[in-house]
Write a protein that binds this DNA or RNA. Structure first.
Length: 226
DNA sequence: AACCGTCGCAACCGCCGAATT
DNA sequence: CAATTCGGCGGTTGCGACGGT
């Protein structure tokens, strides 16, 4: 284990950006620790990854959030809570960090929302099909925004389907699978969420157990199948 | 001009799950 | 099967810019 203190910290310089960018252009992304070593940057792999994800990636849109984007974020946050990566995956060109920052600095104030009250009390596996259906159903009521989005924007991963991976392939558009937490934030109208999700796509082996922040004794089970 | 408080954003930290060894 | 490594996430921090006094 190398000492963390060997790593440089703080803001990235233009020179560091160029080194990282050049390396990724040639060798692709992935194995960030190796990239950190090979470039000679005195940055840890995580730092390189973050810099790419939040700043250097050509998919990253910069500048002010439009009203449409803000509205979309507010709606998605209503549904998903602080799942910034999920939200960002549906706001084209925006990263989770951007969305999170914008929410914390602007939107939460605008909406008069206090921080730190959403809570997760249960986690279950989400299958690929469930994930896909969740994407569909959750997005549908959002009106025209999402229907106009290109398919790749539904990819919840950062790659968005058009970046070169370490083996030279392109990451396909699709949906993130595996474990997801599902949570509700306070002051949200949960009726929409529950009414919009029907039994027909819930995998019987998957269920969600959620606890509204202000009603600790009440939980919800979605189609537990038991 | 100097100081101070606030704001916005980039970056870091700690944790977790998946993949690999 | 356990240990290790890696990638990803959400929360938090630190700092520069900016405006008010």
């Amino acid at each position: 284990m190398k000492a963390e203190s060997e790593n440089k910290r703080g803001l990235w310089t233009a020179e560091e950006d160029k080194i990282l960018l050049d390396h990724i252009r040639v060798h692709g992304r992935g194995n960030w620790n190796r990239i950190a070593r090979e470039t000679g940057l005195k940055r840890c792999g995580k730092s390189c990854r973050l810099r790419w994800m939040n700043y250097l990636s050509p998919n990253v849109k910069r500048g002010h959030f439009s009203e449409e984007e803000e509205d979309l974020i507010i709606r998605l946050h209503k549904l998903l809570g602080n799942r910034w990566s999920l939200i960002a995956g549906r706001v084209p060109g925006r990263t989770d960090n951007q969305v999170k920052n914008h929410w914390n600095t602007c939107l939460s104030k605008k909406l008069g929302i206090k921080k730190g009250k959403s809570k997760v009390v249960g986690i279950k596996n989400v299958t690929q099909s469930l994930s896909r259906e969740l994407d569909k159903k959750v997005c549908t009521p959002l009106g025209s925004y999402l229907s106009e989005l290109p398919n790749k924007c539904n990819n919840t991963s950062e790659a968005q389907g058009n970046e070169v991976t370490k083996d030279g392939s392109q990451s396909p558009p699709g949906f993130m699978t595996g474990q997801r937490e599902v949570e509700m934030s306070d002051n949200y109208d949960s009726s929409f969420l529950f009414s919009s999700i029907t039994d027909d796509f819930i995998n019987p082996t998957s269920f969600y157990f959620m606890e509204p922040p202000d009603e600790p004794s009440v939980g919800f089970v979605w189609n537990s199948g038991f």
